[in-house]
Design a protein around this nucleic acid. Structure first.
Lengths: 206, 206
DNA sequence: TCTTATAGTATACACTTGTTCACCTATTTA
DNA sequence: TAAATAGGTGAACAAGTGTATACTATAAGA
């Protein structure tokens, strides 16, 4: 990546901003208009320079300016689950207290939901009381995965291990002991794919 | 939002996917081609239906299809900053490696950006190597805030304290000592408002 | 039965858009 | 000094693109 002139940098910023706001890139003439350049060829020179320096790419046809960076801007609405009521499936509408739009990489797969953590059993994994976890709904897990497990109707977050026929749910807290599950009323609700910590005032994601 | 027909749903998905891959939406004829519709007006009918049902909006000119749910006002595109190059302002385009849409509560204010953490100096605050922090750009801070500080061109994340005239940058790691800053080349880039931990495969938010 | 919505074909047209070419002026570099 | 780079103007043109119109056909509802 070579250095940009002040003008080129301004124009690149405008293209990014325009695209971010509108969802599609500006036309050459719109760029020219924004910078009071009176001829489309004037703006084109800048675009060509930005392409040459590796900041932009061009497709065929109208409005096909493309930033070299990858834009992961698919957004999916993800339900936020409140206190899980006993006997009601975790994703049932009764448990949903809100919805949050999350980007693709934070909401991979289809059955994704958000839970707020109560308790300190996973502090050593960086998951603290009040944090939100993004959970990918699945019924299986591999050794070492952090999972949301339902034991006798109560949801709990632990690290999952299977040793032969017994399943061990391991807290990440030196003051707490692992839970050994022997096929009681036990299901895996999902796997934790990311953690969101709110440090602002209300500590709320909604 | 009214229901979509199977065909309309397919076409909406294609538009979203195309835009996600290319950075700009498809033209009417490209949509027609993809679905072996032999006339542009055939594809246009579907677009009109999707607009009517509230899933798409149209601008003026070529390739100005806009997905309605991507750009609801409670989502804001937030730049992801790569390695901060010396001498270049942290938010300059040269440092930006991508963009991620974040919900309102995760992107409050205007000058918000995302940084990836290098190092373990804040582990006791639940901020670990590889985590992403959402930073609200501001030049001041209050005692106890976790801030991104620039010292001699290097960006560092620490807890901020001011005692009289000296500023103390406190790591959250028992193995590290606090840094005392005496008004050298020191600026605050922003305050950390949330932390995003990626536990999935690639640990990448992009 | 009539109406509406969905889905598609074919043709035509106007406007948007990208691009090229010639020409101009500074500033920087070899 | 000559050459390259950056920045800009103006006119003209070809291709891409959106849209309108007319026509056909099927399925669902009132």
């Amino acid at each position: 990546m070579r250095n940009l002139t002040k003008r080129q940098s301004e124009i690149l910023s405008f293209i990014e901003e325009y695209r971010s706001i509108n969802g599609y890139p500006p036309s050459v003439r719109e760029i020219a208009k924004r910078f009071s350049i009176k001829s489309p060829s004037g703006a084109k020179k800048h675009i060509d320079a930005l392409v040459k320096k590796g900041y932009l790419k061009r497709g065929k046809g109208a409005r096909t300016i493309r930033g070299e960076r990858f834009y992961s801007d698919n957004v999916r609405m993800v339900p936020v689950i409140g206190k899980v009521a006993a006997g009601i499936p975790i994703l049932a509408v009764e448990n949903v207290i809100g919805e949050v739009p999350l980007p693709e990489k934070l909401s991979e797969g289809k059955e994704v939901f958000i839970l707020q953590i109560e308790g300190d059993s996973m502090v050593n994994a960086g998951i603290e009381n009040g944090d939100y976890i993004v959970v990918k709904g699945q019924q299986t897990a591999e050794n070492g995965d952090i999972v949301v497990a339902i034991i006798d109707g109560d949801a709990t977050v632990k690290r999952f291990f299977r040793k032969g026929k017994t399943i061990i749910l391991q807290p990440e807290n030196e003051n707490m002991k692992p839970i050994e599950v022997k096929r009681g009323d036990f299901t895996i609700a999902g796997k934790v794919i990311s953690v969101i910590k709110m440090l602002n005032g209300k500590h709320s994601i909604l």
